[in-house]
Design a protein around this nucleic acid. Structure first.
Lengths: 162, 162
DNA sequence: CGACTAGGTTGCTTGACGCAACCCAGTGTG
DNA sequence: CACACTGGGTTGCGTCAAGCAACCTAGTCG
């Protein structure tokens, strides 16, 4: 993927991409938002090489996008959680999702939908509830499998189980 | 940077990133939005290697995000323009811009601001005019150099001239 | 005649990614 | 007691993409 620097660019987009523009980074953030919190779970869901996943997680933790917490001792085992900074990537992910749905449509319909937890309304490309009109944030919404989601993928199972 | 495939991912975010997640791609789209339309201009502004820029432009044209048009003959010289598909990446770029401004702040303030052409209002992270409340699209807004923009960069000059 | 411009292409080197194998501590299983 | 399994990684190796500099082509300018 990307190297993580864009020398000479004086632009907040470039600065954002230095952090989350590396190959896999945004997909890791998306997966953690969808409830995948452990190393093996992420590795299986993404199909990413283990050494690369390890490097990305370290970077995302350093950048304060993820937080690594032990969920047991002896032996220590870890989970990754999104920080506020990580959760605030939600609008960008929603935009990319909407763009992908519009321009690379699945014949069966979108594989993933995002709905407003409070009222169940669909979420627009701007992260706004189309039913109640509220401007939403990561915690206000929830992914649900859409009509295009294949039957037996890991993602589908996890999403359906939530 | 990124390779351009995420095998096994059934997700519109992954599909979007297969197209625009490659290193430099989104920055090229941003630059074209900001009025850089020619090969050498893009190369200078971005500091990207010429062979890589050539490959990216070809891919973006293939994907119907950019359009290549001759602006003269003898010899033929070309410019690149955004298609509707390319223009529709604007909300995602605005989100990333806002995220970068919030979490990697420039001590002097944001280097680039986006304003609503019609009323001059600032544009929010959702691409909404904070003054008149309208949901905006690429053509409704315009970048202006912010307080953090250094004095003599190529970007600054171009932006100031618009 | 030589230099310059615009828009690339070619060749070489470096570094990131993918893959498989291995490691380690603790927990079952026969 | 030996053995396998789990979770969370690390190591080594080969390949492919990115960075850099040089070159190419068609036409214009001095």
């Amino acid at each position: 993927m990307l190297r993580n620097d864009y020398p000479g660019q004086i632009c907040s987009i470039a600065r954002s991409l230095e952090v989350v523009g590396e190959r896999w980074s945004l997909l890791i953030v998306r997966d953690v938002m969808n409830g995948h919190r452990r190393f093996d779970e992420l590795q299986g869901s993404l199909g990413i090489a283990r050494n690369v996943l390890s490097a990305r997680l370290q970077r995302l933790v350093e950048e304060n996008i993820l937080e690594r917490r032990a969920y047991q001792r002896n032996p220590e085992r870890y989970e990754y959680f999104l920080t506020e900074k990580g959760l605030d990537l939600w609008p960008a992910l929603v935009s990319l999702l909407a763009w992908g749905d519009r321009y690379s449509p699945d014949p069966n319909g979108p594989p993933m939908l995002i709905v407003h937890k409070e009222c169940g309304g669909a979420v627009s490309d701007r992260g706004i509830c189309e039913q109640c009109g509220k401007v939403l944030h990561a915690r206000d919404a929830r992914p649900v499998p859409g009509p295009g989601m294949a039957d037996a993928t890991g993602n589908a199972k996890v999403l359906a189980a939530r």
